[in-house]
Design a protein around this nucleic acid. Structure first.
Lengths: 140, 140
DNA sequence: GTGTAAATCGTAAAGATTACGATCTAAAGT
DNA sequence: ACTTTAGATCGTAATCTTTACGATTTACAC
């Protein structure tokens, strides 16, 4: 996902193109890692000091719905990153300090043979947590 | 994990044995599924109407630390279930309506060969979400 | 330009969790 | 049994995250 495609997605669904939405997408593209709503809010304030909480939260939800962003949560906070769309389904190794990610091409669902009985699957989550070298992981 | 072992674990670590802690463990053993702090609080109130929020939250944290309970979070709430300790490491299929679980013996970490460079792994999460038949899954 | 539905603001409310001084109690020692 | 004391609980408030909503502003279709 890049900013241009994200903005086209917005248009395509009939949503309006605003400077704040553009800024939000730009920030997420530039950071390219998981950020909490609070962190995103702070970055937005650099460009729009008077921006409302409501605007940030509402747009984060909208963008997640449109798959412009993908979200997850750890330590009690929801976090977002630009959706690594297009290419095939995959998971992430996540630095719990800075939110940086590394792609994992394994998906455990491939090993699940058929639907379980008495259970309708609606989703799954596979994430590996750790610390990247920038955040203090011991060098190997 | 059963109530007896859980209480022994408490003693072993020098914590006191109280009626509320016993009740909390009994409730978790009886329900045997993921419950939110609020739900657990409600069950506790049936036995101890005047129980304090602080007590429930503090004990949930303590029990998770001692691995008497295991926790996860979805839809913005932390949830707990009795730790399926003893036997080998495994994951769960979780009904997001009622918190009931089904065991999965696959662990995707087995397919991760060696440590990644520049990254120190501290944990991982693999959960499959869905709805059990009791909660409205289509019968297969 | 005008009109209108959508977006944003400002602020409050809701919900989950944590914090803390005061009080009570389990359990170890005498 | 009585005393002691560290730990547990209470009652309540504070904090943090997220959601809600009437009023105002704005993108954009006509």
């Amino acid at each position: 996902m890049n900013p241009e495609k994200a903005l086209n997605l917005l248009k395509k669904h009939g949503y309006k193109y605003t400077g704040k939405r553009e800024a939000l997408i730009e920030i997420m593209a530039q950071k390219n890692r998981y950020l909490s709503a609070r962190e995103i809010m702070d970055h937005m304030k650099e460009r729009y000091p008077g921006i409302s909480l409501d605007t940030v939260y509402r747009n984060l939800s909208l963008f997640e719905e449109l798959k412009i962003l993908e979200g997850t949560e750890w330590t009690g906070e929801r976090r977002y990153r630009l959706h690594c769309g297009e290419d095939e389904h995959h998971h992430h190794l996540i630095c719990t300090d800075c939110g940086r990610t590394r792609r994992i091409n394994i998906c455990p669902m491939n090993a699940i043979l058929g639907e379980p009985e008495d259970f309708e699957i609606t989703g799954h989550k596979f994430e590996i947590y750790g610390r990247c070298t920038d955040c203090g992981a011991a060098e190997t």
